[in-house]
Nucleic acid binder design. Structure first.
Length: 478
RNA sequence: UCCUCAGUAGCUCAGUUGGUUAGAGCAUCUGACUGUUAAUCAGAGGGUCACUGGUUCAAGUCCAGUCUGAGGAGCCA
């Protein structure tokens, strides 16, 4: 058996007990020809390995370079030096993998996030990305834990979909047809009957419609999977491939839906606060350092940890769309004509408007509900006023929309009427409409953008830095 | 896709009104030192100035186009 190592985090959480242990990891720095800072990814804190002078051959020690992989056996002793409570006095060092220092791109210094994005295969070996991805993992785990504790079923909705009626953006086509000479119909259009699935297929933009099918049997379900949008979006909060959590619940109205979403977000934050304290503290420091370079008015009011605590302790603000528009119309920003886009009832609120509500007016997460129906999707439940639908968006400071959801239209006649108005083909979605034909029931659901949640918790400004290998327009390296 | 800004050594950046052989810090290499904490000290090597074309006696510097990146907008999670 090869792996008899102890993880560095386990050692550092314990005491220096003068016992012999074996650790394996990668060299962060080698100081003074004697002190090896070893990291194995279990924590950002390095273990100081001491190679006593004279105990190891000089030629051998030259191979202890940044990012070389080592297996070290030694005695865990209280540290003689200052910066750490314990250190490993090495009795045997084995180099598992050399690392050519002339070619290895990472140095023990600050690198720009842009540069690290170009070497995404190695950025895992930095403190920042170590913390980000440990937090990302913890959030993913907490998501399953949250729903499991509440009796929700985890449903795997398809990644390849035959429906292009989901209406959530441009789709990536899935095909095995030769693109230089595809089979054609007599009218010149492409003959998808010849394609792999015998029809036009795409990558999913949402698992919601399939989620509703499962919810109307199991009651409460959620999906957690990849989602694909072929939008040419170049922003710090959009990806072409991202992960989304979509719970869907029978017997929930919009109020129940908002309650679930709020307690969900708080649960995730609380989980990470409890289990990833060290990583959050590192990320908080990183964000604070970064913001030192910004002018005073661009900096966050609160530190990262303060912000998370604040979100945990306070209720989200809940307002209707109509109230949101009124607040904007009454705002000093509007009166001083600070907004680039005009405000009136019926507009689809712009980023600047949402930002104002969340960051200036309320200074905390805001749930806006009851949007005008003409700016929302066909499946949202129509309110009695004839103008609005039971939609709800959660807007988070610094991120914008983090959750989008609604109570679904369960009334067959209303749903079909709306689909026709919006030119959604009812025949293609026969299976979706069947849920309204057979035992229809009030139900609700929402989508939470996983990467946006990771951004919010880690304080990372660019969504490309919270997913291992980001897919964006013109970029699919690694 | 639109607007703005940027691209000079492995990294971060300086480079004046166009004018000799394009610089610094860090990293790397060599040597010294040896309880260091992004070790320190001395020395050395390292450049298709994003790419293509143009203006000019002369272009890192000016002009045009292209590519790439960042910030903002739209689309949204």
């Amino acid at each position: 058996m090869f792996n008899q190592r102890t993880k560095i985090k386990t050692l550092l959480d314990g005491e220096a007990n003068n016992q012999e242990v074996t650790v394996m990891g990668w060299v962060r720095t080698f100081r003074n020809n004697q002190f090896i800072a070893l990291n194995d990814g279990s924590t950002n804190t390095n273990l100081q390995v001491v190679a006593e002078l004279g105990s190891f051959d000089d030629e051998f020690l030259k191979r202890v370079t940044t990012s070389a992989a080592l297996k070290v056996r030694g005695i865990l002793v209280p540290s003689l030096g200052k910066g750490q409570k314990m250190e490993l006095k090495a009795t045997a060092i084995e180099i598992l993998g050399d690392s050519d220092p002339e070619k290895y791109p990472l140095q023990p210094k600050k690198h720009s996030l842009e540069f690290l994005r170009e070497i995404a295969h190695l950025r895992f070996r930095t403190n920042t990305f170590g913390s980000v991805f440990r937090v990302r993992h913890a959030l993913a785990y907490a998501i399953h834990k949250f729903y499991n504790e509440r009796g929700f079923l985890y449903i795997h909705t398809p990644i390849i979909t035959g429906s292009d009626a989901e209406g959530a953006g441009e789709m990536f086509r899935v095909s095995t047809l030769p693109f230089d000479n595809p089979p054609r119909n007599e009218d010149g259009s492409i003959n998808y009957k010849e394609d792999f699935f015998g029809r036009n297929t795409n990558l999913t933009v949402s698992g919601q419609l399939e989620g509703e099918l499962a919810a109307t049997a199991f009651g409460e379900i959620y999906t957690f999977g990849p989602t694909f949008r072929a939008e040419n979006s170049n922003t710090s909060r959009h990806l072409a491939e991202f992960w989304m959590i979509e719970p869907e619940m029978a017997f929930y109205d919009i109020e129940d839906n908002m309650n679930l979403a709020e307690s969900f977000i708080k649960y995730l934050i609380a989980y990470v606060m409890e289990h990833n304290r060290e990583d959050l503290e590192f990320l908080a420091q990183r964000q604070a350092d970064e913001e030192k370079q910004l002018p005073q008015d661009k900096r966050s009011d609160m530190g990262l940890i303060e912000k998370l605590e604040f979100v945990l302790k306070n209720d989200f603000e809940r307002i209707t769309y109509t109230e949101a528009i009124d607040i904007l119309l009454q705002s000093p920003a509007y009166k001083k004509k600070k907004f680039q886009y005009d405000v009136s009832w019926g507009i689809d609120m712009q980023s600047e408007h949402e930002r104002y509500l969340v960051e200036k007016h309320f200074k905390k997460p805001v749930i806006v509900r009851n949007y005008p129906k003409h700016i929302k999707a066909f499946y949202m439940r129509q309110n009695d006023d004839g103008k609005t639908v039971a939609a709800m968006d959660i807007l988070a400071p610094g991120i914008g929309e983090i959750v989008g959801g609604s109570q679904r239209e369960e009334r067959m006649d209303k749903l079909v009427e709306r689909m026709k108005e919006m030119h959604i083909p009812t025949d293609e979605l026969w299976w979706y409409l069947d849920t309204r034909r057979f035992g229809t029931v009030p139900h609700s659901g929402f989508g939470l953008g996983f990467e946006r949640m990771v951004q919010f918790v880690t304080g990372m400004g660019n969504i490309r830095d919270v997913i291992p290998f980001p897919r964006t327009p013109k970029t699919a390296e690694f």
